[in-house]
Design a binder for these strands. Structure first.
Lengths: 135, 135
DNA sequence: TATCGTAGGTACCTAGAGGAAAGTGGCTAG
DNA sequence: CTAGCCACTTTCCTCTAGGTACCTACGATA
């Protein structure tokens, strides 16, 4: 039996001492969690297939894993309706909603500085790729 | 030749459309970048081995990869002194420093809510592990 | 002469995340 | 009587991030 709450990479102990925000980063920014939380926050309570279709490139297996993980962490609420065919609804919890200022800060930083990152990449590539390519 | 600026996992296009902050998350919260930026911000300009020792569990190869990536993204500045033995110093850039409110928000959320995540995990595990273990 | 130290580069190997595809159960529509 | 639906679950397979180990230059030190 596979463990559907499995997390990508357990952090070495030392790196947590070197950086106190590592635990939060693992919870909130592990792979796929950001699109899932964002979609749940944006479109409200929805079913499994809706989530799957909106995110688009995620597979059912991984979506299940991540939803279990988020449910276990208390960021997402799962409601199971024992009908036929079965119906399951997911929604963001209060704890999950408390992340919204964080996401807002991220969006603000992105709008203000993402362009500078891209510019820095162009500079770096121009300076380091084929540095002997002069006329 | 190995590419020292390689990034863990290139995001599928669709997930960016589903979640506008995915690009920033990949830049700032890819593996090891948080401890590196935190350490550079906390202890100031320092050499390669100092970073390596402070973070503790990272290997030299991966540290080099991540530093190259951060340098390319313009978040970290690298200064090479052509001495013998060679001396290289790393420091956080202005662009990197502009992330500090984001990190502060993270630290605040962590202090306020991380305990609730842990409590949610205990609840989840108690409810789901060995649910038939009754007397 | 041999060893040490820095800041990596490089080759090889493994563990594990994640993708693809098929199975499951039970009702319902054709 | 078959096919389809949902929400997974399971098996199999691939890919790659990351670890280990060894290599470099050059001078100082023992």
């Amino acid at each position: 039996m596979t463990d559907m709450t499995s997390r990508p990479a357990p952090a070495p102990v030392h790196s947590e001492q070197a950086c106190p925000i590592v635990p939060v980063v693992e919870i909130v920014f592990s792979r796929w969690t950001t699109p899932i939380l964002w979609t749940l926050n944006e479109y409200g309570r929805q079913r499994f297939v809706e989530l799957e279709r909106r995110i688009g490139t995620i597979t059912a297996k991984v979506l299940t894993q991540r939803l279990r993980q988020l449910e276990r962490d208390g960021l997402v609420l799962r409601t199971y309706h024992p009908e036929v065919p079965p119906r399951v609804e997911y929604e963001i919890s209060d704890l999950g909603r408390s992340l919204s200022p964080l996401f807002a800060t991220l969006a603000t930083w992105s709008a203000a500085h993402l362009g500078r990152v891209e510019a820095a990449r162009l500079d770096y590539d121009a300076a380091h790729r084929l540095p002997a390519a002069r006329t």
